Computed example of a mutant assay.
Amino acid sequence: MAADARPAPLELRLGYLLKHAQAKLARASAEALAPYGIDGHELAVLVVLSGEEPLSQAEAAGRLGVDRTTMVSLVDGLEDHGLVTRRRSPQDRRKNIVELTPAGEQCLREAEQARRAAERRFLAPLDEGQAEGLVRALQALLADGKP
């Protein structure tokens, strides 16, 4: 290897930076959500279920990009904590409709507020324009809809 072709330090590699930034944000989010007894995956389920129309487990799983088995486990946990209810669809008895309970709606409001505050703290080293630019840049990188 030529002397001028040394590998860049890890701190200059995009993959390294994204991985560690995501891990730092995940830790901050987990700490923020702990008082509500949910994690980031469960919060995402509550967000998806908070839409205007009721969703089946399968529809919610599709919107979240998780398999049905994972969705069943997530809904089971949320149901055990009284945050969602599950009922058979009157139109298709093969489908389970999942909806937020009043406790689930309150948990969603409070946990989302805590998550947003943790995100603001995470982005605090950036000024507002830089933070917005980072979010827009990441949205552009993910615009094809593929994870």
Rank of each mutant, 00 (worst) to 15 (best):
A2E: 13
A3C: 07
D4L: 12
R6D: 11
P9S: 03
P9W: 01
L10W: 04
R13P: 00
L14P: 00
L14Q: 08
H20I: 00
Q22K: 12
A23Y: 01
L25T: 00
R27C: 01
R27Y: 03
R27E: 12
A28K: 14
A30T: 10
A32I: 00
A32D: 00
A34Q: 13
P35Q: 06
G40V: 11
H41L: 09
E42C: 01
L43R: 11
L43V: 04
L46H: 05
V47H: 13
V48D: 01
V48N: 02
G51V: 01
G51L: 00
G51F: 02
G51W: 01
E52A: 10
E52T: 10
E53L: 10
E53G: 03
A58W: 10
R63S: 08
R63I: 03
R63P: 04
G65C: 06
V66A: 07
D67W: 09
T69L: 12
V72R: 15
S73Y: 12
S73M: 11
L78S: 04
E79M: 10
D80V: 09
D80W: 08
H81W: 06
H81Q: 15
L83V: 02
T85D: 13
R87W: 03
R88W: 05
S89K: 09
Q91A: 15
D92P: 09
R94A: 14
T101V: 09
T101Q: 09
T101W: 06
P102H: 11
G104V: 01
G104H: 03
C107V: 07
L108Y: 03
L108H: 08
A111E: 00
Q113R: 15
A114K: 05
R116M: 06
A117M: 08
E119Y: 10
R121K: 13
L123Q: 03
A124R: 14
A124M: 02
A124F: 01
P125A: 04
P125N: 06
L126T: 05
A131M: 04
E132G: 09
L134R: 10
L134N: 09
L138T: 13
L138A: 14
A140N: 12
A140W: 10
L142P: 01
A143G: 06
G145K: 11
P147F: 09
